[in-house]
């Protein structure tokens, strides 16, 4: 099968919402939102959301699943997500391989799960429960982290074990690999080589910010740097085509700059994915 259909998406954010609907504005192949930001939203923003989802295919990238929480999954939340997926004909529901809730309190950010054998077992069980409930595979992202917590295995082993044992898909955030490799002093390409790339169904690309000479924060507020584009090129050469998202959450530049970044992603995808390959990531 000849791959022609390359999908480059952009995160739909309120600050740049008008650009998704205007003539001559941004025209990504798909958009991505956090369902938490749009479930039960009415009024002006509900109206905008309806217009934009009428125009673009939608992928969900959640923040509150908290698959690594000790407590039970939030079934009321998942019920709403399931309905939202149905209402908007969502192709992919993704979240993070992290936890964001502890002791019955939401924390609204992504905390690292300890890389431990018992954590693998726990998360695998949770993923299976959630997948059964949603009646679809989960797609989970390798998260950026600024410290590991009492790790007993490597990050690669942790992610690979969970993907293999749970049957979930992997959202490979290439910028996160770069950020983590820098912060924790490992080789990003070796990390990519160790990932179950056959299970990657979605890729994220983003910018980051170096706050100290030895610490990068995954901000999504800067342009993608060349070494991350290089790592992306290295990664996708080994993979079948999947949707690729440009994540930009704040500090928005002129729209031309975002278009240029999306064009660059498209060019790299075309270079790697125009040969005969089996397509796994159409949306």
């Amino acid at each position: 099968m000849v791959k022609e259909d390359i999908n480059i998406g952009l995160g739909f954010r309120r600050e740049i919402a008008g650009n998704f609907l205007e003539e001559g504005g941004l025209h990504p192949d798909f958009i991505e939102v956090a369902p938490e930001n749009w479930i039960d939203m009415g009024g002006y923003w509900g109206d905008v959301f309806k217009k934009v989802t009428d125009k673009y295919p939608l992928i969900l990238h959640g923040l509150s699943l908290s698959i690594g929480s000790p407590e039970e999954p939030d079934w009321a939340f998942l019920k709403k997500v399931k309905q939202f997926i149905k209402d908007y004909h969502v192709a992919v529901y993704s979240d993070h391989l992290t936890f964001a809730k502890m002791d019955n309190a939401h924390l609204y950010d992504l905390l690292p799960i300890p890389f431990r054998e018992d954590a693998v077992k726990h998360v695998v069980q949770r993923i299976k429960e959630v997948q059964d409930f949603l009646e679809r595979p989960l797609t989970l992202e390798n998260a950026s982290y600024y410290t590991s917590v009492a790790a007993e295995m490597t990050e690669q082993q942790f992610i690979s074990s969970i993907v293999e044992e749970s049957g979930c898909n992997l959202l490979l955030d290439v910028n996160n690999v770069y950020v983590n490799a820098f912060n924790h002093k490992y080789d990003a390409r070796e990390f990519i080589d160790a990932m179950p790339l056959g299970r990657v169904t979605y890729i994220h690309m983003a910018g980051h910010y170096k706050i100290q000479p030895d610490l990068i924060i995954d901000t999504h507020g800067e342009a993608i740097i060349d070494p991350v584009f290089d790592l992306f090129d290295y990664t996708i050469e080994k993979m079948a085509p999947v949707p690729v998202l440009l994540e930009r959450d704040f500090n928005f530049p002129e729209m031309e700059e975002l278009k240029t970044e999306m064009d660059k992603l498209r060019t790299i995808c075309k270079k790697n994915w125009t040969s005969d390959v089996v397509q796994q990531g159409n949306i």
Binding site: N104, A105, H106, Y108
Partner: peptide, 8 residues
């Protein structure tokens, strides 16, 4: 406060 809403 133990935040209860999943929507920030």
């Amino acid at each position: 406060h133990d935040a209860q809403t999943f929507q920030v």
